Computed example of a mutant assay.
Amino acid sequence: MSDASFHDGREAPLNLGALEAGDLEVISSLVQDAVFPISEMSWRSKECRFALLLNRFRWEDQPNAKKRDRPYERVQSLLVIDTVLGVASQGVQRGDKDMVLSLLSVHFEPAEDGAGHVLLTLAGDGSIRLTVEALEVSLRDVTRPYQAPSKQAPHHSE
């Protein structure tokens, strides 16, 4: 009997949660370069919930796509942050309903007693700062993967 390897894993929709900063780093790496129209951003203050419907690049599939010489993929995913007490943004034109945003990272800035801020960093110097009572984030794929329109993996200039 041998240990399982990464390649033994099955291809399935993601359904992940983060209750600690280390867990959030995994989610952040998976949502890097996700794009979403500003209209797919929702804060339900009475429910203390902020949600984004993202078109997420499937970073977890990139090695398989290269190896099998098949197209890169995206998938629609729901990123939900719970226990949200307040939302602030910078560099986001909320009135422009046609604006498409690109998510670069998700980071937790802890405060006292488990509270803190979840910072969503966007391309073009934009950001969304969520004041949270506690860190509670989930990421769930909600559609089947589809071919990335660019047919390429996202890349960043150094």
Rank of each mutant, 00 (worst) to 15 (best):
N15A: 15
N15I: 07
G17A: 15
G17F: 15
A18W: 11
A18T: 12
L19Y: 09
E20G: 12
E20Y: 06
A21P: 05
A21T: 10
G22F: 06
D23F: 04
L24P: 10
L24W: 08
E25A: 11
V26N: 03
S28F: 08
S28R: 08
S29A: 14
S29W: 00
L30H: 02
L30R: 06
L30W: 01
Q32Y: 13
D33G: 01
A34T: 04
V35W: 00
I38N: 00
I38L: 08
S39D: 03
M41P: 01
M41I: 08
S42N: 10
R44T: 15
R44K: 14
S45R: 14
S45P: 09
K46Q: 14
K46P: 02
A51L: 11
L52M: 03
N55R: 13
N55D: 15
N55H: 12
R58F: 05
R58H: 07
R58A: 15
W59R: 03
W59E: 11
W59D: 07
E60L: 03
E60P: 08
D61A: 14
D61W: 13
Q62H: 10
P63D: 12
K66P: 00
K67Y: 12
K67H: 11
R70Q: 13
Y72A: 05
Y72N: 04
R74E: 15
V75R: 00
S77N: 09
S77Q: 09
L78A: 11
L78W: 11
L79E: 01
V80S: 08
V84L: 05
V84I: 06
V84P: 02
L85Y: 01
G86F: 05
V87I: 08
A88T: 12
S89Y: 03
G91S: 05
G91L: 07
V92A: 01
Q93G: 04
G95L: 04
G95N: 04
K97S: 14
D98R: 07
V100E: 14
S102Q: 11
S102F: 02
L104I: 13
L104A: 09
S105M: 13
V106T: 10
V106E: 08
H107Y: 10
H107C: 15
E109N: 09
P110S: 13
A111P: 03
A111I: 03
A111G: 13
E112A: 06
D113I: 07
G116A: 06
V118C: 01
L119I: 15
T121Y: 00
L122D: 07
L122M: 08
A123Q: 15
G124Q: 11
G126Q: 07
G126P: 03
S127M: 13
S127A: 14
S127N: 14
I128Q: 05
R129S: 06
R129Y: 00
R129Q: 06
L130W: 04
E133P: 01
A134K: 14
L135R: 02
E136Y: 04
E136W: 06
E136R: 14
V137P: 15
S138F: 04
L139I: 04
L139W: 02
V142A: 01
T143N: 13
R144W: 14
Y146E: 05
Q147I: 11
Q147K: 05
P149L: 10
S150D: 15
S150H: 14
